[in-house]
Design a protein around this nucleic acid. Structure first.
Lengths: 221, 221
DNA sequence: GAAGTCCTTACGGATTTCCGTAATCGAAGG
DNA sequence: CCTTCGATTACGGAAATCCGTAAGGACTTC
């Protein structure tokens, strides 16, 4: 089993909970904790430089802002930065997010090894996830494996940008101007209309406001 | 210090975290846990009937639905039902909610003894909250005591309904029709326009889509 | 009773949204 | 070479949004 683990989670009680579970459930003793991404990164680098590297990172995704100014504000940044130092580090994300497409994104873009949803069965899932990752498996949560590929809308970067701008109150004309200024194509109002129509269909939205509300609810923005 | 405590929290890891904290931080040993409101209620009643009642309830507010059909679906129900049995039971709510008005409502309507926000400093807050409640204090979280009343937009039920309908993609005409059908006044398109304009000002929104996005982000919908 | 305020309603107009049709262009394939 | 297909763009029109002005009613205040 892993012998040295770092837990990055800003909510202290969740942090303590994770530690309790992997201590008692898996017998891991050398567990370090961090409430901030930057702190986690520094702990990680120090351990690596001293030739006593961590073998597993268990991290949340969202870290609430507080008075401490942080360079890294999300677990995603943390993972990317840590991977630059130690590319083969095992990473398990433990987060609220339960949308399959978001979780899949983590596996695809960040190449994480496991994911556990904060939830009712998180103890069992976390234990078996750590065990699975230790065996070299990629451990998807039931939220993803059970959700067959249906009902998943795939958004590309352009779609996300569109939704982002709309949710910030820009009109389509303004978006067009912005795109042209940034020399991003396509940038005609007509194309944006088309893309939006497709999103309306995909999400069964009646209008822009509805669309943004849906996407916000899904946590995609 | 309290000797017998019940922890009701559906997220297992948070549950374990709470137990660890009040065990190690306060030396309480007799801690029972529950993932479901109904289960918590039954444990509570049993203990009371056997003359070994709990002295403190630490409970979450929201309990996720799952396969088990529950009579009580929220911590609020749980608190009310338990108070019927043992009116003087001490109650601490441990929840995500950080909006001052919502939290104040708990103290006013449910007469809870303490509140702790899930967050970065929850360990310290929880420990001192339990200590305060043991002394007989009413322990408000810093989120409430620090939040000066500025910068808070007060929404009435009509505003909320408006925002709700808009976020579901209804047009203003459709909302007007709905209001007239439900015999709710005011119900003219003009008034709705006015109310909306005020919301635009309040939230510094550029248009309806922006407004809904802002309100969603604030968690008011 | 008069004046002021607040809420509701009506209306008009500039702008924007939403959704058609249609033309253009490049890439892929026979 | 030609056809097909998908992506982009142009354009137009009905509907909806956004934001003024203005008028009427209920209420308070002097």
């Amino acid at each position: 089993m892993f012998t040295k683990v770092l837990v990055a989670e800003d909510y202290e009680i969740a942090n303590q909970g994770i530690i309790k579970v992997i201590q008692e459930g898996l017998g891991i003793q050398n567990i370090h904790e961090s409430k901030y991404c930057d702190d986690a990164y520094l702990k990680f680098r120090k351990a690596f430089q001293e030739n006593e590297p961590f073998e597993l990172l268990i991290t949340d995704l969202s870290f609430k802002e507080d008075h401490k100014v942080q360079i890294r504000t999300s677990g995603i940044d943390l993972i990317q930065d840590i991977r630059k130092i130690q590319p083969n580090i095992n990473v398990i994300v433990y987060s609220q997010e339960s949308r399959p497409d978001k979780i899949n994104m983590l596996f695809q873009k960040l190449d994480i090894n496991g994911y556990v949803c904060k939830g009712q069965n998180a103890v069992r899932e976390l234990v078996s996830c750590v065990q699975g990752v230790f065996r070299g498996d990629t451990v998807l949560p039931p939220e993803v494996t059970e959700a067959s590929t249906d009902n998943i809308v795939n958004l590309d970067d352009f779609d996300i940008m569109l939704l982002e701008e709309l949710s910030q109150g820009l009109t389509k004309k303004e978006i067009v101007q912005k795109l042209k200024k940034l020399k991003i194509t396509p940038n005609s109002e007509s194309t944006i209309d088309k893309k939006l129509s497709k999103l309306f269909d995909d999400f069964k939205a009646k209008n822009t406001t509805h669309l943004v509300a849906i996407v916000k609810d899904l946590g995609l923005l």
